[in-house]
Design a protein around this nucleic acid. Sequence first.
DNA 1: ATCAAATACTACTAAAAGGTAGAATTAAAA
DNA 2: TTTTAATTCTACCTTTTAGTAGTATTTGAT
Lengths: 138, 138
Amino acid sequence: MQLLNSSQYAIRILSYIANNREKSLYNAKELAEILSIPYKFLTKIMTDLVKAEFIISIRGRDGGYKLSKPASDVTVIEILDIFNEFVNYEQCVLGIGKCDGEHKCAMHDRWIEPKNLIQKMFEETTLENLEGRDFKLC
Amino acid sequence: MQLLNSSQYAIRILSYIANNREKSLYNAKELAEILSIPYKFLTKIMTDLVKAEFIISIRGRDGGYKLSKPASDVTVIEILDIFNEFVNYEQCVLGIGKCDGEHKCAMHDRWIEPKNLIQKMFEETTLENLEGRDFKLC
DNA sequence: ATCAAATACTACTAAAAGGTAGAATTAAAA
DNA sequence: TTTTAATTCTACCTTTTAGTAGTATTTGAT
């Protein structure tokens, strides 16, 4: 019951960039240090974010990364989709396929409410909403 | 954002046994077939359940498995604990350690409500509550 | 005693996630 | 034009989870 490290890192990275507008570009080295993410793993994730068009990268000396769109346009669920998380809304908590009115898994009824809440949270939370938080390790 | 296969299987197995009181013992072969769980993987999980004292096993010919305690005494969260899931209540959704009033992760406030709901659900749901559901693949 | 049918144990393989290493590419600056 | 600092690419290694194979052990029935 936890998000993939990749997803967690991606949210923290995008969230950090979105809420520190002083600089126009952030490079991998400083992001890795500030956010306590292994450098090489971070660069891999950045490439994913570039390919998914959430981030624009500037290569070469003095290059770096920046958001490709306004923070208010990026929802958490879109970030999760990059890593194929939480895509199967219909998937039941016991992983036995689609749960509907006819076929319910053992926990179906009890899972609906929290599932909908989480889904709503991920859909409605944008990078803008994540402002003013700590990003380092607690 | 999904339970481990082991946890899912364990819940389905215990839930099935709890709600089919006709027989006093269930063997691995029939459980594997009825619940669509790979036989060898199921026997491994059964051994875990026996060691965790949720299941009593009878070895030898005509042996099998049965619950070690009343269905109403077994909560879902206890089952998850066998596989070390959902033990860290304090763990935040972005996996950056303890989130408290002073140090909040980027999603802290939004995560509290669904997290508490899920926790409550796992704590309050017993095998008895899972009665009357389908257990096969939908 | 032997057989048959069951669980338990040991060890392995496969797939996915997490992470690392090093070279290639890009582009500004000296 | 060379250096330098950045991203990108390819390939690999490690850990965890998932699943499989084969043997040993147990025990009731014949």
